[in-house]
Design a protein around this nucleic acid. Structure first.
Lengths: 98, 98
DNA sequence: CATACATATAGATAAAAGTCAATATGTTTT
DNA sequence: AAAACATATTGACTTTTATCTATATGTATG
C-alpha cells in the first residue's frame, strides 16, 4: 500500500485526542446528534464543533443535517482506510514496498 | 474491546507525525540502526532520538542495543494492539460495548 | 588513556493544537 | 417578525509538540 506521509499523519491526528476518542466511542453505537455528544463530554459547544470538523475533514465521521440538528456517524470507508494505513505501517510479516 | 482514552490517544499520537511515519516506513523492510534511519531523514540526531522515544514508549517500536549502536524494529504485538484499537473505534458493523 | 563515534538529555524557541467566551449563522416556533 | 434553539466561526489564551544547538553519556579504537 502506498502511504502518503502527510495524509496518513492527518488521519491519525484525528484519533490522537482523548475527547475525539470519547466521541468515536459514542458513535460506535450509531448515529448521534451533536447535542447528545455534547451532553456526554466535559467540553463547550464550540470545542465540540472544532473536534467534529477535524473528524469530518479526516473522513472518519460523516455529518447529516436535519433541520437545525446535525447528526454524526462513523464513516465505514474512512475507518477502513485508516485501518488499512495502520496495517501497512505496522505489518511485520511481509516486507512491504516503500 | 475496552478502550482507554488516554492510552489510545498516546498510541495514535505515535503515528500522527510525518517524520515518525517516514521512520515506520523504513522499519517495514526490517530492523534498522538509528544512524541509517537518520541518513534518510531531514532532521537532526537529537530530533530522531526524540521520535524514537515516542515510538518506543508507545510500544510500536522495539530497540536493541549492540555496542554503540541501537537497532530499531517494529513491535509486532504493539502494531497488532494499535490496529485492534483502531478497529474497535471505527467498526460500524457491530455495535460494540462502550 | 585519549580520541572518535553513536546516541541521549537539557534547555530554548517556534509552531501547532485544544480550549473558552463572545458572537454569527441558520432553522424552527410562537 | 421576534424569540428560541442548534451549530459554526472568531479571536484570545494556554498547553503541547517538534525542532534546534549545546552538551552529556557510554562504547569502541588507535
Amino acid at each position: 500500500m502506498e502511504i502518503n506521509e502527510k495524509r496518513a499523519a492527518a488521519i491519525f491526528k484525528a484519533f490522537c485526542d482523548e475527547n475525539r476518542i470519547r466521541i468515536l466511542k459514542q458513535l460506535r453505537t450509531g448515529e448521534k446528534c451533536a447535542c447528545v455528544l455534547l451532553d456526554n463530554l466535559q467540553i463547550t459547544q464550540p470545542t465540540l464543533s472544532h473536534h467534529m470538523k477535524i473528524l469530518c475533514d479526516a473522513d472518519i465521521v460523516i455529518s447529516r443535517k436535519e433541520g437545525k440538528w446535525i447528526h454524526y456517524s462513523l464513516s465505514q470507508s474512512g475507518g477502513e482506510y485508516a485501518v488499512a494505513c495502520l496495517k501497512a505501517l505496522t505489518d511485520t510479516t511481509l516486507s512491504n514496498d516503500q
